[in-house]
Simulated assay, not measured.
Amino acid sequence: MTQASESLRERRLVELLDSLATGEGLSSSILEGVQFMRSDKYSPPIPMLYDPCIVIVGQGRKTSYLGDQVYTYDPYNYLVLSVPLPLVCETEASPEEPLLAVSMRVDPATLAELLMEMDTDIAMNGTVPRGIYSAPLTGELIDATVRLLECLRSPVDSRILGPQTMREITYRVLCGEQGGALRAVAIRHNRFSQIARAIRLIHASYQHELNIETLAGEAGMSVSTFHHNFKQVTSASPLQYLKSIRLHKARMLMVQDGLTANAASGRVGYESASQFSREFKRFFGNTPADEAAKMRNLGGGNS
């Protein structure tokens, strides 16, 4: 493909995102599992909670921090999360050049079907992959994303063509140089899927009392093995991860449902409102009320 045609393809991606991504922050599309990201201003590093997804950026740049790891996603690199993760995210954008991106949900059933049809050796090499990575954006992946965005302009096209185009994007990512983290989601009885089970339990029951023994039991591991592998996938200890999920959920309740800090703290499992306020301010850098007001101005609780 010539440089001119590549430039046209990339411009078309930006044009489509600009027309579909309306409003600041995260917005839904007419196709379940697909959302848009838009921002017209720089945003300093802010804690965010990401669900498993593939993020493709047409314009602007986002940088996510997880522990000591840094992940950049921009017009040259896409982002993949195979498990839900609390990240610290920085956005580089301006009114003249807003951030424009599309996020597509990762579906474990689609992953499993694709791997069966690919008929490849999907045995892992014994290492436990991280739950997040960024990788170079290929021409094939841009083409598939443009087709997805084209069909999202029509309800009929979206319903008929959308799911198979999402499937193609998942396939392209699986074939990429960092596809191991997605392949691990679909392989049962490996350590990654065992950790993923514990993560699902945290998200289903974060408001209840959970200890590391219960989580290790859900994963079918000893406490020490579970702790080591959990940190390998998420860059956090199990209890640090649980605390961050509770705090993120509380922030969402305050931002989206208008709950007070006291009400939100009880809803996510805190018995002490004062402890919640202390841990919230330490985690987000603001009081619960100030953080909720800031996130409303930014357009939502997650991005």
Rank of each mutant, 00 (worst) to 15 (best):
A4E: 08
E6F: 03
R12K: 08
L13R: 12
V14L: 06
E15W: 01
S19N: 07
L20N: 04
L20K: 01
G23K: 03
E24G: 00
L26F: 11
S27V: 03
S28Y: 05
E32K: 11
D40E: 06
S43D: 06
S43E: 15
M48Q: 13
P52T: 07
I54A: 00
Q59Y: 04
R61L: 07
R61N: 10
K62V: 12
T63L: 09
L66H: 08
G67W: 11
V70R: 15
D74L: 07
P75C: 06
Y78S: 03
V80F: 01
C89F: 01
E92V: 10
E92D: 07
E96Q: 13
E97Y: 11
L99K: 03
V102D: 01
M104A: 12
R105V: 12
A109N: 11
T120N: 09
T120D: 11
D121C: 12
G131R: 03
I132L: 14
G139S: 12
L141G: 01
L149M: 02
E150I: 02
E150D: 15
C151F: 04
L152R: 05
S154P: 09
P155V: 08
P155L: 04
P155S: 12
V156G: 03
D157Q: 13
L161K: 14
G162Q: 10
I169M: 03
T170M: 14
V173L: 01
G176E: 09
R183Q: 14
A184Y: 02
N190T: 15
Q194C: 11
Q194K: 15
I199E: 08
I202W: 04
I202M: 12
H203W: 11
Q207E: 14
I212H: 07
L215C: 08
L215T: 02
G217H: 08
N229C: 12
K231M: 05
V233N: 02
T234D: 06
S237N: 10
P238N: 08
L242N: 05
K243A: 09
I245G: 01
H248V: 03
A250H: 08
M252L: 04
Q256W: 04
Q256R: 15
S265L: 08
G269T: 06
G269W: 02
E271P: 00
S272H: 14
S274F: 08
K281L: 00
K281G: 00
R282A: 13
F284E: 10
T287K: 09
P288I: 12
D290E: 15
M295W: 15
G299E: 04
G299S: 09
